[in-house]
Simulated assay, not measured.
Amino acid sequence: MANPWAGEVSIEIDGVPHDCKLTLGALAALEAGLATGSLVELVRRFEGSAFSSADVMAVVVAGLRGGGWRGTAADLMTAEISGGPIGAAKAAAQLLARAFEAPE
């Protein structure tokens, strides 16, 4: 079960729950893999609802990798993500928010 206080988000892929987290390494890989811009620009795209499906996929893959998943983006191309594209976008937005939010 994902621990939101630790920045974790749960996402279900092909019926299997996975705990995701944007660790520093996952964030660095995410930023290196972005076609354009920085993490700050990526966060702004999510805040302004101007993100792309590639943005969502990149954040979800980074979060899964930060949670210990050993797959690749190609593995998700035919996978069933709970909630579909909207569920994936919500998980990606939560991951970004929790990665940059200070604990209370």
Rank of each mutant, 00 (worst) to 15 (best):
A74I: 04
A58P: 15
F46P: 02
G7M: 02
A93Q: 07
L42M: 02
F100M: 10
A2F: 10
S49V: 10
D55W: 01
P4F: 00
R70L: 04
L34P: 08
A6D: 05
A50Q: 13
A62L: 06
R44Y: 05
A102C: 08
S38P: 11
G84D: 12
D55P: 12
E80K: 06
G83I: 07
D19S: 07
M1K: 09
R98T: 10
P17M: 03
A2H: 03
E31A: 06
S52K: 09
G7Y: 00
M77A: 09
V43P: 03
K90P: 04
W69L: 04
A73R: 07
I81E: 09
A54P: 03
L24D: 15
S82E: 10
V56S: 08
G66N: 05
L34T: 12
G37H: 03
M57V: 03
G84A: 15
R45C: 00
E12N: 11
E80W: 09
G63W: 00
R45F: 00
T36I: 12
S52M: 11
S53M: 15
E80S: 14
L34D: 08
P103L: 05
G67S: 09
R45Q: 03
A35Y: 09
A2N: 05
M77K: 03
G48A: 12
A35M: 03
R65K: 09
A29L: 05
K90A: 10
H18A: 13
M1D: 12
A50S: 07
A92T: 04
L76D: 11
A32P: 04
V40G: 01
S10Q: 14
S52A: 07
A6N: 02
V56K: 02
I11S: 05
S49T: 12
M1V: 12
A91Q: 06
G25M: 10
P17S: 06
I13K: 11
E41F: 02
G63T: 08
R70Y: 01
P103A: 01
V61H: 12
G15S: 13
G37W: 02
L42R: 01
R44G: 00
I13Q: 10
G15Q: 06
S52Q: 13
V16N: 08
E41W: 15
L27D: 13
G63A: 07
R98Q: 09
A99Y: 13
G25E: 01
L34V: 09
G15W: 06
M1Y: 06
G66Y: 00
A54Q: 07
G66A: 01
V61D: 07
L42H: 10
L34S: 15
K21Q: 08
L34Q: 07
G66C: 07
V59A: 04
E101Y: 15
L34M: 05
T36G: 08
D75P: 10
A88W: 01
A89C: 05
G33V: 15
E101G: 11
G83C: 15
G7C: 01
A73D: 14
T72F: 12
A35E: 12
A28K: 11
